[in-house]
């Protein structure tokens, strides 16, 4: 197995009394997209800063490309492209000058592919204008162009779609997908779960500086929902409780509509017939693939959701096991 691009083991870092990273572990395999999910203050930005050697850790070890980024900062940073939560551009300079500055700092010289990088992100025509006049979306695109200018092996994207309109956000995500397809290793920090959906090969849910769970989304979903999930709805939702005692239904949860886990999809026609026979007028029977959002909240609530004893109907997350 290839050596991980990023390997963080038991890393801790605090700011005054606030713990930003607490015995945090992370492995980012080469050529994959890893999404760090978590609320504000979970430690995502600190993780990016630790990876580039911008911050010193107070405990644990960090290896990026096999090197300690704090002591081999230049070698590591030359191979990283970073888009921070704020685009961090020079507003008084135009787009060309912003990109040229990065190109020169990264030692690209006169032949830096500035125009090509800008064109790739659809910002080529705006390069002559001052960055201060750019919209948020244009700034993000320019920041992305700047981050890939030196063809980095590792891209660190910290909330790359923050403040963007949906169209720009979608375009940015498509570009990240394209880069990942091109073999780049991507670490994406976000609290927007849709952003990581379908993009991440691995998700790490963070809270208060440590990883609650890490792994490929499908594998994690399987771990949380080992059985098939089906959503049920009816004209009279209280009648849905009849499903609890149907054979093959492993778990039952009603919160508005009902969510059941069932051992075999082949039982669904029988379930429908069974419910009809008991006067339940079903309006929805839908096999459900758990989303990253489901997973995120399941992890954050520190429970295996929808695993209830028969006859128990949870009123809130606190009721869960």
């Amino acid at each position: 197995m290839a050596e991980p691009v990023v390997q963080i083991k038991g890393v801790s870092r605090a700011f005054a009394n606030v713990v930003a990273l607490d015995n945090f572990d992370l492995e980012v395999p080469p050529g994959t997209v890893t999404a760090l999910l978590g609320p504000n203050g979970a430690g995502k930005t600190t993780t990016v800063r630790v990876i580039t050697g911008g911050l010193k850790v107070s405990g644990g070890s960090v290896r990026v490309f096999g090197m300690d980024p704090y002591t081999n900062g230049e070698s590591v940073r030359l191979r990283c492209g970073v888009v921070s939560a704020k685009p961090a551009l020079y507003d008084r300079l135009n787009g060309w000058d912003n990109l040229r500055y990065a190109a020169e700092l990264f030692g690209l010289g006169e032949n830096a592919p500035i125009g090509e990088a800008a064109a790739r992100f659809g910002i080529r025509d705006a390069l002559d204008f001052r960055v201060g006049t750019y919209s948020t979306g244009m700034k993000t695109r320019l920041a992305l162009a700047r981050a890939v200018l030196h063809d980095p092996q590792l891209l660190l994207l910290d909330e790359p779609t923050a403040g963007l309109d949906p169209e720009s956000a979608r375009a940015v995500l498509a570009l990240i997908d394209e880069m990942a397809t091109g073999g780049k290793t991507v670490l994406l920090c976000t609290h927007l779960l849709l952003e990581a959906e379908g993009l991440a090969d691995q998700v790490v849910v963070m809270d208060q500086g440590h990883a609650l769970i890490a792994g490929p989304p499908a594998e994690l979903s399987k771990r949380f929902w080992p059985n098939l999930v089906v959503l049920l709805d009816a004209e009279d939702r209280e009648t849905l409780d009849e499903a609890k005692i149907f054979e093959g239904v492993l778990t039952y949860e009603r919160n508005g509509h009902a969510t059941i886990q069932i051992d075999d999809l082949a039982r669904i026609p029988d379930l429908i017939a069974y419910m009809s026979a008991r006067g339940v007028r079903l309006t929805r029977v839908e096999p459900h693939v758990p989303t990253l959002e489901d997973l995120y909240f399941a992890v954050r609530n520190k429970t295996r959701p929808a695993v209830f004893k028969r006859g128990q109907t949870p009123k809130s997350a606190e009721d869960r096991l």
């Binding site: 900062g73 940073r77 921070s84 704020k86 961090a88 551009l89 507003d91 700092l105």
Partner: peptide, 14 residues
């Protein structure tokens, strides 16, 4: 203040 310190901090410049 402008946030560009983040860019410099992640750059290869010593």
């Amino acid at each position: 203040e402008k946030g560009t310190g983040e860019f410099l901090a992640h750059s290869p410049a010593a």
